[in-house]
Design a protein around this nucleic acid. Structure first.
Lengths: 255, 255
DNA sequence: AAGTGGTCTAGACCACTAG
DNA sequence: TAGTGGTCTAGACCACTTT
């Protein structure tokens, strides 16, 4: 009979709210414009603030909004495309692609890194490892923080006397690394949440969603270095210009 | 005097909670084990349920936990590495890499896709486009849902009579596509939230965090196809075996 | 000091799964 | 039907930025 299937799956309020807001953003707001504050928006839509916030959180996750404590909620610009796999065979720091060496120290790497370094080569957990910190800047904004782990055995030529820490030391490690013959590399991307120190560097709150890019650098002798880069997931779109060269420049396809 | 800088930045409860739970997971729980329910955990830690949930959400985002309504919260297995860029030059569907064609139809693509198709070639917004739906399976689990947009002009040889929809139609479109000479491809990865239909396919709730992989396929004539693949961010680690071949198999490096 | 987003509480009800 | 996670409310206070 006329029993049409009405609302078999009632849409959650925050989900509907997100859709409404999303359309409003497209039509009535310009990039950088500030939205009314959360209390007012919640009142205007007749929902509790927590519910409104759930919708805003999703929109922020999708890169549509930017929220800053003490300031307000603004409409975010389209995500920045950051090249991650442009040059197929290259050591970190070979091209001037926005990475700024920050610091370097010698320490024992976390267990997960030890496992990565141990692949296909001799690496013992108690070997000393140079840990290089770098930050990637785009348009004056920090978009990524990296920890690069280089076993001392990979850079035997590194003078121990040279500046024991700081940017100069970091550059020295990178320079030594580039003397080796790079045999290949390996990359993986996954979702994570920002550790406290990375969050600070990226001007985000701890726990903010990030894209974790893990890279292994191979020489004939095995894994010569491992990099773990933390990209801001809200503002970044990682691009892998495999072949064909042209850069993707677009707005997100799916919500 | 003795005014030591105590707790300049008081750690939020949910953050501390997350750390505690994370350690407990490492030490006292096996993969697949079910945790006590949220009300009990909240009581045990002396916090409101909402606060406890905030911690659980983060752990789920990091792939440590798996929650299912009506069932419970279980310890998640390490993320599955899914190869995304293994073969550098290949049309979708060329290798038997777990993709299962689901359906195909002819329709007008969303505006964002039109923009991508228009790069470096003649493509008008009102041209018909074949939309192929595929699902990627790993260990009997759906890990990704894809929409592949193929302008009719790219596959002129496709018989209009052949099965107008369904898997057979999808396979036909892929087959025709593979006749072309692939000139190159382009890929980008970003964070998104699952649309309702993708969420259903991936057995997640709408809005679940996903990794959006956008690929453009080039021929000499321009962009011949565009693919938008939606990967479950909780269970997947995308691997790009650029060169050197060996697969990364590890647990997450950073939290 | 005022205004913003971030955290937290103590409830309630709903949708889903499984016995 | 009982038990689970998912949604929602109406408050409160805190941390931060700006004026």
């Amino acid at each position: 009979m006329g029993t049409t299937q009405l609302e078999t799956v009632p849409e959650p309020k925050y989900w509907h709210l997100k859709t409404v807001l999303s359309e409003a953003l497209d039509q009535d707001f310009a990039v950088g414009e500030v939205l009314p504050n959360e209390r007012e928006l919640a009142a205007r839509f007749g929902v509790a603030r927590a519910t409104l916030r759930q919708a805003l959180e999703q929109l922020e996750l999708e890169g549509r909004l930017q929220r800053r404590r003490g300031v307000g909620t603004t409409v975010a610009p389209p995500r920045v495309g950051v090249a991650v796999g442009s040059a197929q065979h290259s050591w970190p720091g070979e091209a001037a692609d926005g990475w700024e060496p920050q610091d370097a120290s010698e320490s024992l790497p976390p267990a997960a890194v030890v496992k990565l370094l141990g692949t296909g080569g001799a690496f013992a957990a108690d070997q000393p490892v140079h840990t290089v910190r770098r930050t990637r800047m785009t348009n004056g904004q920090a978009v990524a923080a990296e920890l690069l782990y280089v076993p001392a055995a990979s850079v035997p030529g590194l003078p121990a006397i040279e500046a024991p820490s700081g940017p100069a030391r970091a550059r020295a490690v990178l320079r030594e690394l580039q003397r080796l013959v790079l045999d290949g590399q390996d990359r993986s991307v996954e979702l994570g949440s920002a550790r406290a120190d990375d969050a600070k560097e990226l001007d985000r709150l701890p726990g903010a969603p990030v894209l974790l890019v893990t890279t292994r650098y191979f020489t004939a002798a095995g894994t010569a270095a491992v990099s773990v880069a933390t990209y801001r997931a809200d503002t970044c779109r990682l691009t892998f210009g495999g072949s064909g060269g042209v850069e993707i420049t677009h707005e997100p396809v799916a919500s």
